[in-house]
């Protein structure tokens, strides 16, 4: 299939062209699947969310006012995150934590991260428990504050901080074990 430029693709999408929709899926699926997988508990869930997000995009394409592929990617990414969070919002209420759970933060070793490949880093992130991974991603990747994360996930701010702290500890441990493996 001959790839069309984004402007043409967008025009055809807004006309309801099914082929353009298919082209959009082909272009963005792999990158968006990464996002869906981060915020979902399984690969199957991630696929399901990604498909729902694309369907929503096709339905609401008229309200998209951007003109670049990056804007489209960002828009769909937000839809995916929102779908994932809405799906799991209720369960965070049950996982409230206490203030004393908070411990001193330890930094994730930057040098080690620098030396790791995309896949290795992504695998580290995917290995995090679901709830920790979501908080970690929202904070470290999407740049939300703990207050915002707490609102989005329907949890307390303290809980968000605790999740981040624990996810860092797990990441740190995993990176160090990965380093040892390399040395051995």
């Amino acid at each position: 299939m001959i790839s069309m430029n984004f402007e043409t693709l967008l025009t055809r999408l807004k006309q309801g062209d099914q082929l353009a929709f298919r082209e959009l899926v082909m272009r963005l699926s792999k990158r968006l699947m990464t996002v869906a997988r981060i915020y979902s508990s399984s690969e199957e869930d991630a696929k399901d969310v990604l498909q729902d997000a694309f369907l929503l995009v096709f339905k609401k394409i008229q309200v998209f006012e951007g003109s670049e592929e990056g804007a489209m990617y960002g828009w769909i990414k937000r839809i995916i995150i929102n779908l994932c969070l809405n799906k799991n919002q209720k369960k965070y209420r049950r996982n409230e934590m206490k203030l004393e759970d908070l411990k001193i933060d330890k930094a994730v070793p930057e040098e080690a991260l620098d030396k790791m490949s995309h896949d290795e880093i992504m695998q580290l992130i995917f290995k995090l428990p679901d709830d920790y991974r979501k908080v970690f991603s929202l904070y470290a990747i999407e740049g939300y504050s703990h207050k915002e994360i707490a609102e989005m996930l329907n949890m307390t701010e303290i809980n968000s901080r605790t999740h981040l702290h624990r996810s860092r500890k797990i990441l740190q441990a995993n990176i160090e074990s990965a380093k040892k493996l390399v040395i051995i």
């Binding site: 699926s29 792999k30 990158r31 699947m33 990464t34 996002v35 997988r37 981060i38 696929k47 930094a107 994730v108 930057e110 991260l113 620098d114 995309h118 896949d119 880093i121 992504m122 992130i125 991603s137 470290a140 990747i141 740049g143």
Partner: peptide
């Protein structure tokens, strides 16, 4: 650190 992770996630293509 954030920047490193962001860049990795941004450019990562899931094997699907």
């Amino acid at each position: 650190t954030k920047k490193i992770i962001q860049d990795h996630v941004q450019s990562h293509e899931y094997d699907i």
